[in-house]
Design a protein around this nucleic acid. Structure first.
Lengths: 126, 126
DNA sequence: GGACAGTACATGACACATCATTGGATGACA
DNA sequence: TGTCATCCAATGATGTGTCATGTACTGTCC
């Protein structure tokens, strides 16, 4: 709240902003070039890969992702069209849908994860 | 490069991502609600306000902003339509355009800057 | 001074995110 | 059981960003 704190906040914000934009642009560019998916697609695959033990509903994705429900629906559309993901009916609650990685999706995720980590290493100071 | 460094990188990345998205969403939302401009519009006004001593060409904006030249052209369109900014011919180089804050633009910037700092304080840990 | 590469900005086509809404399923309660 | 509020997911309209390109001007080099 003090007036003197403000310049530091603005600096801190610019640092975050710059780090985020630089890194996410690099990630998006390289993931697209090497694997044909954008950053948001990759992160969705990543969520699915973490959820491997339990079935993952659309609403679980929505809960764990910063993206909108609407956006996730369209991302899953694209992933499904690419054959990386499959929507499966949910017997217990017919409003819900399970989303599962296909084998191709698991493979893609594994490969793209290498690129992902590589770029984080290159763009973030450790 | 070491394998052990990777989890830390991923954590660091998620922290940046989360801080950025949370803060930029809050900024965008509040700036829109209270002042009718988005975050990128505000940051463009901010650049113009800093450049106050010298005239600012479109290309200076492009150099100082993470945005694309194309995006800036459209942002300036919107700001101009709102009466916050004015494009002025540049006699020395007729390809160039000066971009100047109008009085309304300076006033808007001043007001919005308060909101901006307030939200930074609320969203960033200091 | 004429040709031409390079620069400054605008614009059109396109990608993708959000918001608002819809359709269908569920659960609670009279 | 019928009604109704709520929930899950998809979809259409819209806004805004990028890329590729167009238009106009500049400066250089012959």
């Amino acid at each position: 709240m003090s007036t003197e704190a403000e310049p530091r906040l603005v600096e801190q914000w610019r640092a975050i902003q710059s780090a985020y934009l630089k890194t996410s642009n690099a990630l998006d560019r390289e993931l697209s070039a090497r694997h044909g998916i954008g950053l948001n697609e990759f992160e969705t695959l990543d969520l699915l890969a973490e959820h491997t033990s339990e079935k993952c509903r659309m609403k679980d994705l929505t809960a764990d992702s910063p993206m909108t429900q609407s956006a996730l629906s369209k991302i899953v559309d694209r992933l499904e069209k690419g054959g990386y993901v499959r929507r499966a009916a949910c017997a217990e609650d017919r409003r819900s849908l399970f989303v599962e990685l296909t084998d191709a999706g698991a493979k893609l995720h594994e490969e793209a994860a290498v690129t992902h980590r590589e770029l984080l290493a290159a763009n973030l100071q450790s």
